[in-house]
Design a protein around this nucleic acid. Structure first.
Lengths: 246, 246
DNA sequence: CCCCCCGCTCAGAGGGGTCTCAGAGGTTAT
DNA sequence: ATAACCTCTGAGACCCCTCTGAGCGGGGGG
């Protein structure tokens, strides 16, 4: 079985080969960071900076999914989508778009099973959306029996956005939810505040790593409340999520 | 069992293979969005832009149903229907038509078991009509025992357009009904406002996502009135329909 | 043993998302 | 023609979420 650099089992295609993803964005920095994050998931990633290159690369790579900026130097993402779908009708598309711009033109996108995220986004969100798309499209081989993350008696249903600890419902804010998702996708692994900040917060976040401490504290109050703690501090290194010793 | 991209069990042909649908419309954008939405249902979809292509594709695909624009560049939908019925008498046809145009000629069609929707339509409506046609024609294998959606003590009879909560009748406007149907077809799954807008509102709707909030508020007053709430807001994500914890 | 620094938590400001009301405009039914 | 209903817009209020800053506590090194 192929694995991610983080040691998790990777989502794979039905034949066991890595999922193939094409990243299309004209901002090299953003493309770079996206490419890195998706490779980290164990996927095979190629990047393109404009629509023409994207289509050419897609014909060669035959990707399972495309991460596609709406605004491109030579064309827009919607035209690329249409061309893509004529030759590869089963490909999943995740659009990247500015919050204010063209939100109305997004109409119809999610209806076809595709999805979008607005800039600025967090890498966790992009990866989660992409995983969701691929899973629903039946392209990814399931390792477990669904969109549920389980660590000890802590259970997260990503579709319902529902978290339970020992069967009890835990209500979380959006940021708390994403932070916990990141922790649960990396159980028993020490994550530094910098790592968490890079993954869970938007790439343009200018604030201090202090927020991470704050949100860890929020999570503890809700997730560990009165129970055996699962969120542990590793002084000078970061945080770990692990179930009680058994 | 084959499943839709949304994870629901798909309607299948009696032999278990996906239902085959042909989309005929000369507007590429509309054909694209229709094709995507029907694929999302787990069906096998082909598209054609004119009558001649449609007939050729139909001979090859042998579709169970055809979504057919009445106005075509080379001919009209009625002629296509006649030709189709000579070679494939069992095929179901869902007509797409402008509101004002030839409504009387359509009336005769529906007597033959076929159906129609007027432009602009919502994707939920097209999918629901198509499901109804296929079910009544006996082409689809039933998973449940009929056109009833059930979530907790909330029951919807799609044919009768009747909704009851805990046995009590709930009267809904057309938009409220379609919104609730979409929610009930995706229970325990968080649906974003964009998703809801794309599926429940017409494809040409240019307004804001604010309408969704408004209609959710209407639904709550009618469906959740005085009872344990089933419609929940997930801040920053969307809405989810789920029965109370049991 | 003491001090320094890292981490934790509280309090509060600011912003943004959501809910609801009121009303205009259009359509359908009587 | 009139009434009833349905749909959507706009505005305002409210509440939650997010982040900043400061003070406190504890662990570990000197």
């Amino acid at each position: 079985m192929n694995t991610t650099r983080s040691g998790r089992p990777a989502l794979t295609r039905p034949d066991g080969t890595p999922l193939r993803v094409l990243v299309v964005d004209d901002d090299p920095d953003l493309a770079e960071v996206l490419t890195g994050a998706l490779r980290y998931e164990g996927w095979e990633v190629r990047a393109a900076g404009d629509g023409a290159t994207a289509l050419a690369t897609a014909r060669e790579l035959l990707p399972d999914a495309v991460v596609l900026d709406v605004m491109l130097p030579d064309t827009d993402g919607f035209a690329v989508l249409r061309d893509l779908h004529t030759t590869q009708p089963d490909v999943c598309v995740l659009f990247l778009t500015a919050r204010d711009a063209v939100e109305d033109r997004i109409a119809g996108i999610t209806a076809g099973g595709d999805d979008y995220v607005t800039k600025p986004f967090s890498l966790e969100e992009v990866v989660a959306r992409l995983r969701g798309l691929l899973r629903r499209a039946g392209m990814a081989r399931q390792q477990e029996e669904g969109p549920r993350l389980v660590v000890g008696d802590l259970v997260m249903d990503e579709d319902a956005r529902e978290v339970t600890r020992a069967g009890e419902l835990v209500e979380l804010s959006p940021t708390e939810f994403e932070l916990l998702r990141f922790l649960m996708r990396n159980p028993r692994r020490v994550l530094s505040k910098a790592q968490i900040l890079d993954r869970v917060w938007s790439y343009d976040f200018g604030g201090q790593a202090h927020v991470v401490e704050l949100y860890i504290s929020y999570l503890r109050k809700k997730v560990d409340a009165g129970r055996e703690p699962m969120i542990h501090t590793v002084r000078g290194a970061g945080y770990v999520l692990k179930p009680g010793t058994r």
